[in-house]
Design a protein around this nucleic acid. Sequence first.
RNA 1: CGGGGCGUAGCGCAGCCUGGCUAGCGCGUCUGCUUUGGGAGCAGAAGGUCGCCGGUUCGAAUCCGGCCGCCCCGACCA
Length: 596
Amino acid sequence: MRWSQTFIPTLKEVPEGAEIPSHVLMLRAGLISQVMAGAYTYLPLGLRALRKAEQIVREEMDRAGAVELLMPALTPMSLWQRTGRDRDFGPVLIHFQLQRGNRKVHLALGPTHEEVITDLVARFISSYRQLPITFYQIQTKFRNEERPRFGVLRTSEFLMKDAYSFGTSLEQLNESYQRMYEAYCRIFDRCGLEYLAVEAESGPIGGEASHEFMVPAQHGEDVLVKCDRCSYAANTERAARRKTDQPPPTEDLQPLELVDTPGASTIEQVSRFLGCEPQRLIKTLIYLADGKPVAVLIRGDHEANENKIRRFLGASRLELATPEVIEQVTKAPVGFAGPVGLEGVPLYADWDVALVRNAVVGANQNERHYRGANLGRDFLVPEDHFGDLRMVVEGDPCPRCESGTLRTSHAIEVGHVFKLGTKYSQALGARFTDRDEQLREIIMGCYGIGVNRILAALIETSHDKDGIIWPLALAPFEVVVLPLNVQDEQVRQVAWKLHDELEAQGVEVLLDDRDVRAGVKFKDADLIGFPLRVTVGQRALKQGQLELKWRWSSQAISVPVDQAAEQIPQMLQQARSVPFRQLLQEQKQDTSQTSG
RNA sequence: CGGGGCGUAGCGCAGCCUGGCUAGCGCGUCUGCUUUGGGAGCAGAAGGUCGCCGGUUCGAAUCCGGCCGCCCCGACCA
């Protein structure tokens, strides 16, 4: 391909509004162009990279035995109503009415495809002999994101690989899950991403039923928690902590004191008003667990984890109580609930609540709090009502190993594998007849990969001040040939010939045939980040040489003109056999050695 | 949904507070000459509903009101 024949609108300056490296570089390198908030055109180079990521995903899905199909983005609203997900998705689901003749049809753009695929399976699969099976597609999804942001990371239209497994038993589900998990590892390895599979919130099935594939990156939207000693890693929703035998503080007990706190109902307001640290406060949250009110105590500076609370209570649904319920339970307006004298609701507490002495708590009276409240004396929580009920924070002890400490870091979620169970097969009647002639529901799993995010995550974690550093696997072109002066007949001949020879050997090569100054070509090549750059210039040509340079290396390699077409494919082959992260790492060491 | 910022040539910006000639600058584009291994130099040229609608005024990019769009922080995110 010749530069002048394609379309590569690189930008010298950072476009207004682009903040994070992947967004800035994708725009500047001419990979994408914004159409509106949350929707981008993939320009030729961006599309090539996207297609390469897509192809890697496809190959690994096929290898794992999944079968590809393509479902429509347009779906009937009735399908979403049958599973209740029209409600669950709320405004995120893009739906609309269309006029067709004298009637109206209500359609939704698929934000995901559990309903469509399960409906398909319900129609065509009826025997255990047809199972297990895993379907997948690579298709555009639509979600009305409240706030699209960070370039291609969060958009309202995005390319997703979604796979769905169907099986007769938990064993089959676990096998499918494991196969997908391993396929994901191969995919992200091949894409040159440094990733972590972390435990994620798993919903009704429980156990290790869900993993998110996260790429640690400074600008990631998600937060992952990782042990600094062992391999434990989880997302914040899921992350647990170990119970420590920390003794309660020895501070003297103070008398319980009722204080007026006019206008102060939030933790921040109360702590400022009373001049105490938030960790001295205990907040009392009233939840409805399967419809019944419970009170949960959490230290003021901590954040409740509703999933942990739900699991701890053995409830299937948990939601914050409405103001009406709260007033009924506490006999006070929202913001003044407290454990002292609270009757008629079971009381639960996070472990750390036991470590707060002389606490500040709501008084169950309007505009009043208690100071000097103490567990055991002023309120009681049964021993077995204490648990790990809050979000972990940096520095919490690891739940897996004895000595590790939890660390948090930002990350980009690129994939998610999830054991679904029978939620959709139940709602949509996807059943099969078992060997013993019993009608049973099909057990499902679902597995997603954000294809656009693969590119963004790669760029976030592989760039320098000059531009993107692509791995060969994702680069829009593997090789760029730079004839530095296209007016020079010899330069021209050598460059054009090399390009043709490489292309004939199946190398993805771009010839920068523009009549522009050398500097412009170098800058653009670095910005776009082609893995291998071949410079054809008069200087080296005098010695019968060409100059080769890997994007991740600071050193150029000289190669005789007549051997280049033969050597370059070999070099590419060799580079492909080395993990991309290792190439980057080796280069870092090289430069630190030479500069040190 | 709460808070903040921005909208002026293809791109990045100044001008606005304190209204007043023909609305500027850099980059890019086009023409010519020179230059040719890290975003060239000189000379010239084209390119604008100053986001939109309304108001105030002799006069609005500038002041006022409404609307639209974009970005950031927070909330939310099967």
